[in-house]
Design a binder for these strands. Structure first.
Lengths: 234, 234
DNA sequence: GTCTATAGTCGGATAGAC
DNA sequence: GTCTATCCGACTATAGAC
């Protein structure tokens, strides 16, 4: 397409690339916080200490910058999950995995996802960005979904499938995958009502650790049952 | 405060009240979908088949309409949870409740919340509205939180407290409450990636029923453990 | 109570100097 | 590659007729 898809600053730190990168980082924060329309080009250029004209210059338009931010998010997520990916691939190469292996991998993955979402406020903005796209998907959502999310869903549900002895392509596994994800994501998505419930202004390290314990315990509990024998009234 | 807090159309269907109500309903959809700044007064008045000037006339400003929408959401939620509230109050009047009672009430409440969030696309817009406020709370968030959300948190965590034999004001109970809520909320918050994972364009009734089963089964499973004996590596 | 017309502001993008 | 100046469109809110 265009060199506009090249995002991160190169080894040869040309002046243009650093402006370009600063704009993307500004977009990451501002689009996440205020949405596409809520973010003005002036906010973006101010935050990046760049000129307004740099946006149409580098990205064609404000929308172009928005898409470039999405691609950047995919790259960042890929970096974050590289460890999980490596472990998973190694595991799968040695044939079908056991339930215990799957459970351990689950725990690792929950830890990894939670780390991305629960700890620190830094990723908050870009998670918001993704959630906005969930609510009203534009072509930008394709970049995120096809670039990363699809893969996370796939390995998460393959692990669940092993744990609950079901097929990974079954609706049940996919829906349970989604439910378990929700337990994690809510801690970043609904942070404000959590803080008010806890009656604090910020999560402490003790809170974070307790959240990890809870997430892993709940996941273990959920995966120790099969839906049919869960004692539901038919 | 002001007559601006009166929201729903009265018995005497004055012309003004119906315009006023139409604007609130338009705001419910549009603010939810496009955010405060992303929604223009033109969109609002068009959608409500009203004149642009009706907004400053009835609500003082666009912001005033936004706040009125928030109050309307609280009213709607109160109506939705009236049944749960009645059952809870009756239960609590007859002294401390048993674990089985708490578990049944939990199931009822999950059903009730899920019904609000999972079924139909109608509530989707206003859930989005709340989530926007979670990400960047304004004075509008107080209306929602103090008006309704606080109460849901309170009864939800009191039930959890009974089930897991812990104190309802403990951080553990509050955090587990949050996690369980996340399992429900994710189905509306992250609808798009769910649909893509399931490879459908719309949830069927079978999906909805399966979601209920999963939510209740998972909740039962989660509440059958206490965090300390969950087999975590210390 | 509802409408048209318009004032006043701010947004994104462009032109062209350097 | 970066800057200033500026155009043009879109926005909210008001004024005043009906």
């Amino acid at each position: 397409m265009q060199p506009t898809t090249k995002i991160q600053p190169d080894s040869h730190d040309k002046r243009g690339d650093s402006t370009r990168f600063a704009l993307i980082e500004a977009g990451l924060d501002l689009f996440g916080e205020f949405g596409f329309k809520g973010t003005t080009t002036r906010m973006l250029s101010d935050s990046a200490s760049a000129n307004i004209s740099a946006i149409p210059y580098y990205f064609g338009s404000k929308k172009g910058l928005y898409l470039a931010v999405m691609e950047y998010i995919v790259e960042r997520m890929q970096e974050h999950f590289v460890e999980v990916r490596v472990v998973m691939e190694k595991m799968q190469r040695s044939g079908p995995i056991s339930r215990d292996q799957a459970l351990d991998a689950m725990k690792m993955m929950i830890q990894s996802i939670a780390q991305l979402f629960v700890e620190s406020d830094e990723p908050k903005a870009w998670v918001q960005l993704i959630m906005r796209e969930q609510a009203r998907p534009t072509d930008a959502f394709d970049i995120i979904y096809d670039g990363q999310m699809k893969y996370v869903q796939k390995i998460f549900s393959s692990l669940i499938a092993v744990c609950v002895y079901a097929h990974q392509d079954s609706d049940e596994v996919k829906l349970r995958c989604h439910a378990l994800m929700g337990q994690i994501l809510i801690f970043i998505l609904s942070r404000e009502s959590l803080l008010r419930h806890l009656n604090v202004r910020k999560l402490t390290d003790e809170h974070i650790n307790l959240i990890y314990k809870i997430l892993i315990s709940h996941a273990e509990a959920c995966l120790s049952i099969t839906i049919s024998d869960a004692g539901l009234k038919k």
